[in-house]
Design a protein around this nucleic acid. Structure first.
Length: 862
RNA sequence: GCCGCGGUGCUGGAAUUGGUAGACAGGCGAGACUUAAAAUCUCGUGUCCUUCGGGACGUGAGGGUUCGAUUCCCUCCCGCGGCACCA
């Protein structure tokens, strides 16, 4: 065994790499092609680097190292996504400032990553909790505000009674808090909300230009959930009012026999006096999402007392209230067509509402029993102008009819919701907004101030994606009256020192308790005003972090007194050089949220003109890595006691063995269980590799045999191609196979060949490779040595194994030279002499011979 | 229910465009070395039959296309992940 020798070796090379400055990427290098390799940055938790980090980062590192050796100018950076609840909770428990905890944790992570030999460019390290960094997170928010994409709204939010925090829809999993699992309740809070829905179509369209794997694209498309249909206005009987609905089936309008509105629908406010309705609405609104979905089978509802007019049939139809209709989707109201929708059918049956078929199915159908929902088959009936059409044809006709009559039009709806951007916590970016009650009283919004007017003039909305609130949106204007953005030159708005970090539990953030920080002057009128005390969600810091690495130096040196422009505009040339991210490696858990949010923010920045025009998307390729499970095949967790700690493994087997094992376990995208025996196998392989080449180095051959040369070059081709497609497991298998063959055949290698073989191992086992490189007497680091090239001439005259089949069944194999193996006549002649095959050919007559040069010959015999 | 991914020995997995199924590793068995154990090394290891030459079967199930299917097509079953009263 290599014993504990690897510790000294690791220490020795770490010191040298540190001295050499690790692996800097060079801005504007024109000689080499740039390659931006990004792996998701971690949340620096107190427990240090875990097996998942070690796995994904080693995978990224192998790729980065190989590409660097190939001559690319590789940007492979690392940083810390350090705002977050665990640190805040730790601060609550211990009273230690989160910044201090973060500094300790990042120091541990950095040291562990250096030990793991990840070839990051440490000069570009970033930290989302650094005020120099979050100045720009705040800046981005101010742009969202100024361009009308951030608004303030009192809305029912998901409230976690345990964390005492408002959650985004994205953080609610099956009606439970993503973090602690507590069932989520509803609560009304004044929230900052970002209009990501305005970008729904852009986010969909942009996917087409990227090379994301199918899985990731599907997840994003699914999450956005676009559906096309129509909006239809139903007059309310005896009132000067309309009820607007969204439907994907306008063809079934003639069959709409009642309507249903959500308990939160505005119309409900006008009719709450009736006791029964009051009671129903009250209990429905209190229900958590979990309860609402749990009750999915049994629908409940109450008649509102109002009627609408079906604009197609002119009939009076009742309006019901039920919580199966969601306020947050479509218009919060639906037209119910019980004959052709399962939910409507169930509701109609329960409350005895009429079911009128408007599609005649081909087969016999009992409409009292079930709804008929097929769009492909059947014929429209009872539907005036649509009669006789197939439903999917009728949809288009119905929309045209609605538009002609002026009672509806084509419309699109999304599952994607606007993004709740407020958190009631301390350890996050402060939202740099000031609220002035006096200005709010007068209804003054920022866009009416001198500054705001100047902004609007300068930045005429570049496209319709922007909703500038003071155009004609009264609601937004109202909600934003009195809110003023901080001056950009005054950023960052730093977090104040606090005694206690507990959330207040009233829905306010701990910042609200710091009177001296909250109190300020109105930026418009100078009257006493107060700061926003909510902070930003975790996603805010990671939305643009891939832009921060190219700009890292500029960010740390930025001086608002010297610089007029924002950091992105001021250093456009850096972004031009490095963008887009060529390969983005991350986990499946971020395929919807983080990926969608960061694409959205990028598109927004692109739209306002601060990103390079050439790159409308931030990430070219997305690779989602797999998961390492515990030895018991289950997710690692402290409570199960199945956690593997990379540092401990490295202590026992060395970093090289750990890295190489992680890459050998299986495909980079797979979910695999940890197996210490497998790790021992890898340690054995590395020991054998080391022993073998130390011997070879001592007694190098002047040249190697042709077969050996062929094997070597085959290996170079295989390893190179496999690393490019992230098939690290097969690259390593090929190296093992090669070593086995080398030993069995007693091949001997020249110094040049040995150097090739050390380089092939370098991305996987950086320490061992470096050590062998030195022993070989090479100058400099193996990690900056050129990646070996395949020498084709050695592959020309290889022996080929040709499979001989009769009727597709393997009967023999032949060892032939490449030349012979290509010659059909020769191969057939040889085969016919072979007794193993001849007996099959003798019995019947040969109908046909299939020949694949160098590979296979197949005799078809009757 | 919808969307996506997958199902190959005892286990993790391999098989670039349809062309020798089970590479490589682990585990297990036998042997060598050793006073012994560990470590290391060598050989064997899909199932069944065998006159030891070889033969039959075999990639979730059934069918199809093909000279040839783990790979392509159809139907079904199972597992994993995501979404879900989404109008």
């Amino acid at each position: 065994m290599a014993g504990k020798k690897f510790r000294q070796i690791e220490k020795k090379w770490q010191e040298r790499w540190e001295k050499a400055g690790w692996y800097p990427a060079v801005d504007f290098d024109k000689k080499r092609k740039k390659l931006y390799v990004l792996v998701e940055f971690p949340y620096p938790s107190g427990s240090g680097l875990h097996a998942g980090h070690a796995f994904s980062m080693t995978g990224a590192d192998v790729y980065a190292r190989k590409k660097r050796m190939e001559g690319y100018n590789v940007l492979f950076p690392m940083g810390w996504d350090a705002f977050g609840l665990p640190t805040e909770n730790y601060a609550i428990k211990t009273g230690i400032h989160p910044a201090k905890v973060t500094a300790q944790n990042t120091a541990t992570f950095r040291q562990q990553m250096k030990r793991m030999a990840f070839s990051f460019d440490w000069r570009r390290e970033i930290n989302t909790t650094d005020p120099k960094y979050y100045r720009w997170t705040q800046w981005v928010f101010l742009q969202l505000f100024k361009y009308g994409l951030a608004y303030k709204k009192k809305m029912p939010i998901n409230w976690c009674p345990s964390c005492k925090i408002g959650l985004a829809n994205e953080e609610v999993v099956n009606g439970r808090c993503e973090r602690c699992g507590t069932p989520v309740e509803r609560r009304e809070l004044d929230q900052w909300v970002v209009s990501i829905t305005r970008y729904a179509d852009r986010l969909l369209a942009g996917l087409e230009t990227t090379d994301f794997v199918a899985k990731v694209k599907a997840a994003q498309i699914n999450w956005i959930g676009k559906s096309e249909g129509a909006k239809i206005r139903f007059p309310i009987a005896d009132r000067e009012d309309f009820l607007e609905v969204f439907t994907t089936r306008p063809d079934t309008l003639w069959g709409a026999t009642f309507m249903v509105i959500a308990p939160e629908h505005p119309l409900v406010e006008k009719i709450r006096k009736i006791k029964e309705i009051e009671a129903y609405v009250k209990q429905a609104r209190q229900k958590s999402d979990l309860e609402r979905t749990d009750l999915a089978r049994e629908k409940t509802g109450v008649f509102s007392g109002f009627y609408a007019i079906n604009p197609a049939t002119g009939k009076k139809i009742p309006i019901w209230i039920s919580d199966f209709v969601l306020a947050s989707y479509g218009t919060g109201a639906i037209m119910a067509v019980p004959a052709h929708d399962e939910r409507d059918h169930a509701f109609a049956k329960k409350y005895g509402l009429p079911i009128i078929p408007v599609i005649q199915p081909r087969q016999k159908w009992d409409f009292a029993k079930a709804a008929y929902t097929d769009v492909e088959h059947g014929q429209m009936i009872n539907s005036g102008p649509l009669n006789g059409l197939k439903p999917n044809v009728a949809i288009k006709k119905a929309i045209a009819w609605l538009e002609k009559k002026g009672i509806g039009e084509k419309a699109v709806s999304y599952h994607l919701r606007d993004w709740i951007f407020s958190r009631q916590h301390y350890w996050g970016e402060p939202i740099p907004m000031v609220y002035c009650p006096a200005c709010a009283e007068k209804g003054i919004s920022w866009w009416e101030t001198q500054e705001g007017k100047a902004f609007l003039e300068k930045f005429q909305a570049p496209s319709s994606k922007f909703r500038i609130p003071n155009s004609n949106d009264q609601d937004s204007k109202q909600s934003l009256a009195g809110w003023f953005p901080m001056a950009e030159k005054d950023l960052p708005l730093k977090l104040p020192q606090v005694e206690r970090y507990e959330p207040t539990g009233t829905g306010e953030s701990p910042l609200a308790a710091i009177k001296g920080w909250v109190a300020t002057r109105c930026l418009n009128c100078g009257q006493p005003a107060r700061r926003e005390t909510d902070t930003m969600p975790n996603w805010a810091g990671s939305d643009w972090y891939y832009l921060a690495y190219p700009l890292a130096k500029a960010i740390s040196e930025y001086d608002p007194r010297q610089e007029e422009k924002d950091i992105f505009s001021a250093h456009r040339d850096l972004l031009e050089y490095w963008l887009p991210v060529d390969v983005y490696i991350g986990g499946d858990e971020h395929n919807t949220l983080h990926l969608l949010y960061s694409r959205f923010i990028y598109q927004f920045l692109w739209d306002i003109g601060v990103m390079p025009r050439r790159y409308p998307e931030p990430y070219q390729r997305r690779i989602s890595h797999g998961v390492i499970l515990g030895p018991d095949g289950r997710r690692m967790s402290k409570s199960r006691g199945n956690v593997i700690i990379p540092d401990k493994v490295a202590d026992k087997y060395g970093v090289d063995a750990l890295r190489t094992y992680l890459m050998f376990m299986g495909p980079f995208t797979a979910t695999m269980a940890w197996n210490e025996n497998g790790l021992r196998g890898i340690a054995r392989f590395l020991d054998r590799w080391q022993d073998y080449f130390l011997r070879q180095i001592k007694h190098p051959a002047s040249d190697s045999q042709p077969e050996a040369k062929a094997a070597l070059n085959r290996l170079v081709a295989k390893v190179g191609a496999d690393i490019d497609r992230f098939a690290y497991n097969t690259a390593l298998a090929a190296m093992m196979e090669f070593l086995n063959a080398s030993l069995a055949e007693k091949w001997r290698w020249s110094r040049k060949d040995i150097s090739v073989l050390i380089r092939l191992l370098a991305p996987f086992a950086p320490y061992l490779a470096e050590e062998l490189w030195e022993k070989l007497g090479e100058e400099g680091s193996v990690h900056w040595a050129p990646w070996p090239k395949v020498e084709r001439r050695y592959l020309q005259n290889e022996m080929k194994t040709v499979a001989v089949q009769v009727n597709g069944k393997l009967r023999a194999t032949l060892e032939l030279t490449a030349e012979e193996a290509k010659d059909q006549e020769k191969v057939v002649a040889l085969v016919k002499k072979d007794p193993r095959v001849a007996k099959y050919l003798a019995s019947g007559q040969s109908k046909k011979t299939i020949f694949v040069p160098g590979k296979i010959v197949n005799f078809v015999v009757r």
